[in-house]
Design a protein around this nucleic acid. Structure first.
Length: 197
DNA sequence: TATTGGATCGCC
DNA sequence: GCGATCCAATAG
């Protein structure tokens, strides 16, 4: 017996205008949606990392504002996309009040809508290879630097609550950084097969 | 203007 | 384990 339409609520700017660790945890179990050129791609967020303020040496904002990281210093609820290793894109969601640089890196998704197109974009057939890493999910969902600065309350890219309950959240050090490893600012849904590595 | 290193991935 | 590959930050 099928239930009625699930609760679906687009997260508003107030959600992002809060302490970054809290936002990073609460994003788990929510759905990232990208809609461009008539397609609809989405996945459940299963892994995030927090990058916070002026004193976090792992954050791009550590040494102040630059052309690349200026979105992090702006209003909460916008997308910050950058290129790393010359090849890969990474997607962050800007948090906290204007002038305080902070964001949540989206590291992994459990793919839901548009899986066929994701497979095509990734040139991979296995579900597990589609969005189990920050650069993989950007390739699968067609997130590139044109998305940098996009309003997360637009219809192009946003996060919504579909009423899912998260069973258990685990935390660890952030991945791929040199300094700031003592902070356990990586969060993921325990037992999700789509968590990176 | 030149140099250096990177919030990764995929293959060896 | 390691190379790809090029942008962006920093130094000169």
């Amino acid at each position: 017996m099928k239930k009625g339409k699930p609760i679906s609520k687009k997260l508003n700017r107030k959600f992002y205008n809060r302490p970054t660790v809290q936002v990073a945890k609460e994003l788990l179990g929510k759905y990232l949606v990208v809609q461009k050129d008539g397609y609809n791609l989405s996945g459940k967020i299963v892994e995030t990392e927090a990058y916070i303020g002026f004193k976090d040496p792992a954050s791009h904002a550590y040494r102040g504002m630059t052309p690349r990281n200026m979105v992090m210093f702006g209003d909460p609820g916008y997308a910050y996309v950058y290129i790393t290793y010359g090849i890969h894109h990474c997607l962050n969601l800007v948090t906290e009040k204007k002038g305080y640089p902070a964001a949540v890196l989206i590291r992994a998704l459990d793919p839901t809508d548009g899986i066929g197109l994701m497979m095509k974009r990734r040139e991979r057939q296995s579900l597990k290879d589609l969005t189990s890493g920050p650069a993989k999910l950007c390739q699968a969902l067609n997130v590139d630097r044109k998305v940098n600065g996009a309003d997360l309350y637009s219809d192009v890219i946003y996060v919504e609550d579909r009423g899912d309950e998260v069973q258990k959240i685990a935390s660890s050090s952030r991945i791929g950084i040199k300094e700031g490893k003592e902070k356990r600012w990586r969060f993921y849904i325990k037992n999700s097969e789509f968590v990176s590595r």
